[in-house]
Amino acid sequence: MKKYNVLFLCTHNSARSVLGEALASTHNSGLFVGYSAGSTPGTAVNPFAKALALEMGYDESKLRSKSWDEFGLPNAPKMDIIITVCDNAAGEVCPIWPGNPATAHWGFPDPSQVTGTDLEKRTAFVAVANGLKKRIDLLASMSLEKLDSMALKEIHQKA
């Protein structure tokens, strides 16, 4: 069974894109290998995103903020799908991705901007994770060998 490499992009690669990476990699279909990166990566993964990723069973050693430049290098894994999850990253000029992957924008509000109690902050992260999971579930149900950017945009509209 082919595994599809999915790269989730967000500006700082500390919250939404990390959740996408963990959700794709731990998806029960076994179809995906998730990756994440940012245009201006932060210094660390947000603690709420990290906690959720670990609860999913994601490997802690893979949890780090990465530059999207890593995925444009010759030895980088070839991406099948690239998804921006924040409006800033969607509006930036992205690197040229080898292999012409399908692309889409699945925008979510930044949970790291939520103020309040830890419970309120965690609730915001869980809401984003649930939204991403719903879209990844829809993606897994598609005929992936014929996937294109238009089909990915339809997932966003259905979810």
Rank of each mutant, 00 (worst) to 15 (best):
M1T: 14
K2T: 09
K3I: 08
L7I: 05
T11K: 07
N13T: 08
N13M: 01
L19K: 07
G20T: 03
L23D: 11
A24C: 14
T26Y: 00
N28D: 11
G30H: 09
L31N: 01
G34P: 01
A37S: 02
T40N: 09
P41A: 06
G42A: 10
A49G: 05
K50T: 13
M56R: 13
R64A: 15
S67G: 11
S67Q: 05
W68D: 01
W68N: 03
D69G: 11
P77C: 12
M79C: 04
D80L: 03
N88E: 13
A90E: 15
E92D: 12
I96G: 10
I96W: 13
G99F: 02
N100P: 00
N100C: 07
P101N: 02
A104P: 04
H105T: 14
G107F: 08
F108V: 03
D110Y: 09
D110H: 08
S112W: 06
S112H: 02
T115G: 13
T117Q: 05
T117G: 07
D118S: 14
D118P: 08
K121H: 06
R122F: 02
A124I: 12
V126Q: 14
L132P: 04
I136M: 12
L138D: 14
D148W: 01
S149P: 04
M150Q: 14
Q157F: 12
Q157W: 03
